[in-house]
């Protein structure tokens, strides 16, 4: 059963958006080239954080000359400051059919998470890009900034309709090949790529950005006995490809399923830790804001 799309009114909840403004999102350092903002960058220029000295050249601001050094050495040096610029955040959002399946579809939680993060990012004068993907990645918005664009982002998200299968690895590789300004990539997906993690994890390593993985899960993913239909003789049908697997549900089979699912999660988490990425596991059936609160320890998430 394909769930209906989330309407703009249901998604754009002012109360919800006001509550996420308490959070802040940052990365260690962004590439220079952005607008002046709050994120640490490797750009040198105006700022308050001292970075280095360099010899004076004609045209430098006389206020940055360090007169103490001149008195000791007799040569002119100027103080160089670290310039704070905006952080680009790239949202890679899964809109495959598996995200729209079930009574509480993963896409609803995924869109709320995406909008919440977008509100945080735009609120701190950073920029975002929207790259929905299914069988392939598409570029919906490369650069959006300013709080005023939050409504536009919400409208974009509310228009997402179920597409086809999942090609997460291919979409990541496409994004990596775009040579975007280095920033943060947020991948919102169930990570159920038909090629498996064997393809997804190497692709993640190609990204030159910091990475936040938002894994959308449902309780029956880890414990299929919660689904009453999964009992006896069943034929499980893939929500994307329609392929069926005939099964006789037994305790032994359930155990084997749980083992396979746990191995999948462990591997994804291990890779995220190894790559310095963050992994947020969001239960699609629960309140999103509450789960985001655990992600933003102390109100800040720094990657």
């Amino acid at each position: 059963m394909i769930a209906p799309q989330l309407s703009f009114d249901a998604l754009f909840d002012p109360d919800f958006l006001a509550r996420v403004q308490q959070f802040a999102l940052s990365v260690t350092r962004v590439d220079k080239g952005g607008r002046l903002a709050e994120q640490a960058s490797n750009a040198r220029g105006q700022g308050v954080d001292f970075a280095d000295f360099r010899p004076y050249i004609a045209g430098d601001d006389l206020r940055t000359i360090d007169w103490n050094i001149y008195r000791r050495l007799g040569r002119l040096f100027v103080r160089v400051f670290e310039e704070r610029q905006s952080m680009p955040v790239y949202f890679l959002i899964d809109i495959s059919r598996s995200m729209f399946t079930g009574e509480s579809p993963r896409i609803h939680a995924g869109l709320r998470v995406s909008l919440a993060l977008a509100a945080i990012v735009l609120g701190q004068q950073d920029s975002i890009g929207l790259f929905p993907f299914s069988d392939a990645m598409t570029i919906q918005a490369r650069h959006l900034s300013g709080k005023g664009n939050l409504v536009r982002v919400a409208r974009y998200l509310a228009e997402y309709a179920p597409a086809a299968g999942t090609s997460l690895s291919g979409s990541i590789e496409t994004l990596a090949a775009m040579r975007l300004r280095r920033g943060l990539v947020v991948i919102v997906s169930d990570f159920f790529d038909s090629d498996g993690l064997d393809q997804v994890l190497p692709a993640l390593s190609l990204l030159p950005h910091r990475t936040l993985l938002v894994q959308l899960v449902r309780p029956e993913d880890g414990d299929p006995s919660r689904n009453p239909a999964l009992a006896g003789e069943v034929a499980v049908e893939d929500s994307e490809t329609g392929a069926q697997v005939e099964l006789t549900i037994t305790p032994d089979l359930l155990d084997r399923y749980r083992e396979a699912y746990a191995a999948f999660n462990d591997r994804l988490l291990s890779h995220a830790l190894a790559q310095g990425a963050a992994l947020a596991r969001i239960d699609a059936t629960r309140d999103v804001l509450e789960q985001l609160g655990t992600l933003f320890q102390g109100g800040r998430l720094s990657l």
């Binding site: 993963r106 689904n227 893939d238 032994d252 084997r256």
Partner: peptide, 24 residues
């Protein structure tokens, strides 16, 4: 054998489990 069709997104895990525990 009367199988009830259940649509899921986790087919890959069921496939992995079924390889170790055949249904018939």
């Amino acid at each position: 054998v009367q199988r009830q069709v259940v649509r899921v997104a986790t087919t890959l895990f069921w496939q992995a489990a079924a390889q170790a525990a055949p249904s018939r």
